[in-house]
Design a protein around this nucleic acid. Structure first.
Length: 182
DNA sequence: AGTGCCAATTCCGCGGCTAC
DNA sequence: GTAGCCGCGGAATTGGCACT
């Protein structure tokens, strides 16, 4: 089980009101490095992480000791959901930050013809969802199914998967993913 | 203008191999 | 044992894009 260094760094950077570029300038790395680390696309060496933390400034021990404050908020109005998707696919997430959370819940909306892409999604965890409206073609490994309203899926996210809205109407899905690795 | 992200590229450390 | 070379993979940078 690895520590979510990216989420931790993003949380701490935001708390110090620093942009990626500002922190990069202070610590002597590039903004892209900060971006890659925060999105967990890069595993920084201890030395690199130390350099970045020096720009905050913060020690490694403090960095790993910090606990996220659990949000007290329990209810969210429809207009308080956080959009983390874009263009033809909308992902409305419950809660703006999932740092320290174990579960990600999404209201997904696929415009007709929209597609998560030819390259299948692969990530840690497991996910499931129920189609609320429209028709969704779901591919998991080599298995492909068309799901209609009321149909559902549930699989390990490690298995290559792809979602595609077929038909003329948008498709809406309520889904969950744990841990929040999507 | 400021921000975050991404693709392409470069840099660098490490392991494997060979010769001495 | 160790010095030198090479290839590979991951870290880091560059340059640029889209969005607000």
């Amino acid at each position: 089980m690895s520590v979510d260094i990216g989420g931790r760094l993003r949380f701490i950077r935001a708390r110090h009101k620093l942009s990626q570029r500002e922190l990069a300038k202070r610590s002597g790395v590039t903004n892209s490095t900060i971006s890659l680390i925060e999105s967990n696309q890069m595993n920084p060496s201890v030395g690199a992480l130390k350099r970045i933390l020096d720009g905050i400034p913060m020690g490694l021990a403090e960095f790993f000791a910090i606990e996220p404050e659990r949000p007290r908020k329990a209810f969210y109005r429809a207009d308080e959901l956080t959009e983390i998707g874009k263009k033809p696919i909308s992902y409305l997430q419950i809660g703006d930050s999932l740092f320290g959370r174990a579960l990600q819940i999404l209201k997904e909306r696929y415009e007709p013809g929209s597609d998560t892409g030819r390259v299948p999604l692969v990530h840690e965890g497991e996910e499931g969802g129920i189609v609320v409206s429209g028709r969704l073609e779901v591919t998991v490994d080599d298995e492909r199914r068309v799901l209609n309203a009321g149909d559902a899926y549930y699989f390990e996210s490690r298995r290559p998967h792809r979602f595609r809205c077929i038909g003329a109407k948008p498709c809406e899905v309520i889904s969950a993913c744990t841990p929040p690795t999507f």
